[in-house]
Design a protein around this nucleic acid. Sequence first.
DNA 1: AGCGATTCGTTTAATCTTCAACCATGCGAT
DNA 2: ATCGCATGGTTGAAGATTAAACGAATCGCT
Lengths: 163, 163
Amino acid sequence: MTTDTTDTAWLDQGQQRTWRAFLVGTTLLMERLDRDLRDQHNLSMPEYEILVRLSEADSRCMRMAVLADSVSHSRSRVTHTIARLEKAGLVIRAACQSDGRGVEARLTEKGFAALEEAAPTHVAGVRRFLVDLVPEEDLEAVGRVFNAVADSLIEQNPAMDVR
Amino acid sequence: MTTDTTDTAWLDQGQQRTWRAFLVGTTLLMERLDRDLRDQHNLSMPEYEILVRLSEADSRCMRMAVLADSVSHSRSRVTHTIARLEKAGLVIRAACQSDGRGVEARLTEKGFAALEEAAPTHVAGVRRFLVDLVPEEDLEAVGRVFNAVADSLIEQNPAMDVR
DNA sequence: AGCGATTCGTTTAATCTTCAACCATGCGAT
DNA sequence: ATCGCATGGTTGAAGATTAAACGAATCGCT
């Protein structure tokens, strides 16, 4: 924008540069982590994230809605993702005991094994392309910032296992 | 992961929390900015980004490949995005003078107007859900971090208009 | 108990992105 | 000149995500 007849509070040059670096950086980072997982372990990032959450849950099993909230994806999306994982035999679905509407997704042994295999690749990527690249205090700042962002965007969200 | 027979350099708890906050935060942030643009201006984030780049270029016109590099999207993706924008009349394509293979995308008046309309919405969102939420020095850290990330992931990329 | 409003999860279709194959042009060496 | 190869960009199909509509079960209230 050059001439400006609005009263919009534009970003200053530094903020602008930060914002674009963020956009480009995340685009490249996500793409790279995703590609590595796909090429080496036949998993996408979203699929991997789901497996991680399940692996940490009691009896490696979670309700669909809780799972959806924990990764901040839509329920529809999680339904599709779980469907794929189920087809691959990494997860299995079962009706929920306590709530007739509910469905629980449980990690299979095969799913757990797949996660164990993929994890080192993923973590190495996160280190190599992010964590090990910058001073610890900058990384901590990133943590503060995105916690604030997430908090400000989560309104009606009971499942606070998010972080 | 609980028991660990690998020699993988796992993330410590703080790094882990940072990483997850980043994932969840960016997911929610992007989704929100995208939704706002769509609802109010019928533009997606990627489309908006393309329009921004074009608006800043000489004669509001760029080669496809340069455009692709500048937003860090695949060429195929940019082809599709530009096709949509062209159908909407916001952009027009023309053969490149100097290089018979080349195609230039030029912002139309209508496209420029659409961008002028959408920009305040977008910037307000970036402020509200990111910039205004955190101390300036934390934001600057974010800039440093993602510049480093982008740099480390850009190898063979001649177009350095990225930032 | 019964009724309306919510919540849960799925489904289908539309939209967007990725992937692989492809043609045309330009470049460099011979 | 011409051959081989790299680059620029598009295409169509496959894959993933979003959006909207839906049925089923639960909850809250009376």
